[in-house]
Design a protein around this nucleic acid. Structure first.
Lengths: 91, 91
DNA sequence: TTGACATGCAAGCGGTCGCTTGCCTATCGT
DNA sequence: ACGATAGGCAAGCGACCGCTTGCATGTCAA
C-alpha cells in the first residue's frame, strides 16, 4: 500500500482529486481534457495515468473496468488520517 | 510560502510534527535525541535542521531564538486546508 | 476482419530531494 | 580570553520523481 502523504504531495494529483470529487467516475481522457480546461493542468495522457497509479496505490482512487473504458472513483476516507493525527483547533 | 503538502510528504518531517505536538518548544538537539529514542528516526543534526526549514517555510513550525537556544513551536492550523478541501464522510 | 479508439507497459532522461561534509558564527561558563 | 556548546550556511552526491517516448493490448463499430 502506497503513502497517502506522498500521493497528495504533487499538485497535479491534487487537481485530479479535485476533479474526481466534483465529478466522480471519469475516464482517463475525460480527466485529461477537464484538467486542461478547468484546472489549467496540461499533462499528457501517460502522465495522468501514472498519477492515477499513485492515487490508486494510496487507496484514494479505485478503477472500474467496463469494456474499453476505465472509470475512476475517488475515496477521500484515507485522508481522514491527517486531521486525526494532527488535530487543528476545534477538531 | 512553501507547500504544506510537500512538507508532510516526508516521514521524518511527520515524525518531527508528532514530537512537537507531544512536547512543544523543543530545541534542535532535543528533537534529534527524542527522534532517535521514541520514533526510531536516526537523522543527523543537519538533516533535522533542513527538515525544520521546510516545516517553517510551510508555516507548520515557528522558531523562537533565546540566547544560544532556538525553540521550535508547531502550528497545525495550515493542515486544516486538507480536510476542508476534500471532506471525508461526516467531516 | 479491419481500422479506430481507449488504455496499459516499460525504458530512458532531466530535475529535484534528502543527506552528508566541511566550515563558520554566536552564546555561555570559567 | 578561552573552550565548549548550540546552531547556521553552502557545496556536492546518490536516489527518487515526474515526464516523455515507443510500442503492445484489448475493445468496439462497420
Amino acid at each position: 500500500m502506497g503513502d497517502v502523504y506522498r500521493a497528495i504531495a504533487d499538485p497535479t494529483r491534487r487537481a485530479i482529486l479535485d476533479e474526481l470529487v466534483e465529478r466522480d467516475g471519469q475516464t482517463l481522457f475525460e480527466l485529461c481534457t477537464r484538467l486542461v480546461t478547468k484546472h489549467d493542468v496540461a499533462s499528457s495522457r501517460q502522465a495522468v495515468s501514472q498519477h492515477l497509479d499513485v492515487l490508486v496505490d494510496a487507496g484514494l482512487v479505485s478503477r472500474r473496468r467496463e469494456g474499453r473504458y476505465t472509470f475512476h472513483h475517488v475515496h477521500t476516507a484515507p485522508l481522514g488520517e491527517i486531521p486525526a493525527r494532527w488535530p487543528t483547533t476545534g477538531g
